[in-house]
Design a protein around this nucleic acid. Structure first.
Lengths: 221, 221
DNA sequence: TTGTACGACTTACAGCGTAAGAACGGCCGA
DNA sequence: TCGGCCGTTCTTACGCTGTAAGTCGTACAA
């Protein structure tokens, strides 16, 4: 089977899936395809192009999933439709946990991502949004529209379960509120899913907060 | 003046400020300090450590700024205090535009970031939040708490002003809603500030949406 | 049969992070 | 005054990265 851009990109996703994004080098990618590194350059202009293509591939996978969801004909319940769409997108990203980081580094916009946003926008417009409010909505959602958020610190991160109590006590002087919160929350569910400490419950809480806010803004308009 | 961890980290910020984060290599950093690359390793364990330190330095700069803001004594108007704090943090990041990307790659949490979040949390608790709701709030804010968001596609990105109209017309078939929106919005203010198309107005819209939502959740509790 | 274009390969290079150890300089006990 | 020590810096070198340049085999058109 000859090389092709398609095959190269699919292999790239496969390599990243199995070894993480830092294991995706041109040489390893070639090896995975039974070829030499430089051979890839005939089908791909450089590594940036590979990453662009990979993002497009993942976004395409997302589109395939979300486009199977049947959308309410009247568009009245936009919130439910948007919510379902976003949570479905998230499921795809959960299968490629390295992907959010790559999405964030892209500066060229993938057509598939555009397509995704376009459909999302369409739902809001159908639900009664003005262009202006829909525009704000897109920015307010940001990466959450595609199903992920990036946390800047991970309360449950680092250290085993036993150390954790000791660590907390030690930090209490410096960070009293954080320690108080973490102690009460006992937020030690290990099924943190995407990014760092971005679990499903928290994601949905934030998502609903925004969607509800947008709905209220729409009603006021 | 001898090398020191402090001096190395400050130089790292300076290099990134002037040449972007991709220009920050150990060799260039050393050159900037009038030393050899390997000399840095006496003061710093490796490049990851440099990046950790840089994040801590920026977060410290943020803390210095936000801690000068006088906080309402009673904590009743938590929303105003939190809002002001976050927008001030944003101003610091606007002086180091490469920084958000570095923040997102860190897996070890900087003490200064913890300190920042701790104080933010304190404001919410003083404002009547339960630990549980405050916890949700932290996740809902995510990186926005520190003053930035990362957009996944940039509507105003790429192409000169003249090309843009032509591009839009060309894309209208594929992305009708996006094109419709962009046409109406004429969202061509060039003072996009942080990340890609993350301008001040949009940031504040999203921030207020979340803060208002949190306030309502607090009232209901 | 010969030219031409495609597609894969070989070789090579500069730049990266950093391991290992040598060399320097200043202080301290003899 | 003289070692010796030790904190700090430098030299050298290695493996890895992305990729520029050029070579080679094959398939097909003339």
């Amino acid at each position: 089977m000859p090389l092709s851009r398609e095959r190269v990109l699919r292999a790239a996703v496969s390599v990243a899936d199995s070894g993480g994004i830092e294991s995706l080098t041109m040489r390893r990618l070639a090896e995975h395809l039974g070829a030499e590194a430089m051979s890839l350059y005939y089908h791909v202009t450089n590594k940036e192009d590979v990453l662009d293509g990979v993002v497009d591939l993942i976004a395409t996978e997302i589109n395939e999933v979300v486009e199977r969801i049947d959308v309410p004909a009247d568009g009245a319940d936009w919130k439910k439709a948007v919510r379902q769409r976003i949570l479905s997108a998230r499921e795809v990203l959960l299968r490629h946990r390295w992907a959010p980081g790559v999405f964030e580094t892209r500066t060229n916009t993938s057509p598939a991502v555009l397509r995704y946003y376009d459909a999302l926008l369409g739902m809001m417009l159908a639900g009664g949004f003005s262009y202006d409010l829909a525009h704000h909505a897109m920015h307010a959602l940001g990466s959450r529209a595609l199903g992920f958020t990036q946390e800047l610190f991970d309360p449950s991160g680092g250290g085993g379960a036993t150390d954790q109590a000791a660590d907390l006590a030690e930090m209490a002087g410096q960070f009293p509120h954080l320690v108080g919160m973490l102690t009460e929350i006992a937020h030690d569910d290990p099924d943190s899913t995407l990014g760092w400490c971005d679990d499903q419950t928290e994601f949905e809480f934030g998502l609903d907060l925004i969607l509800d806010g947008l709905d209220r803004a729409r009603e006021r308009a």
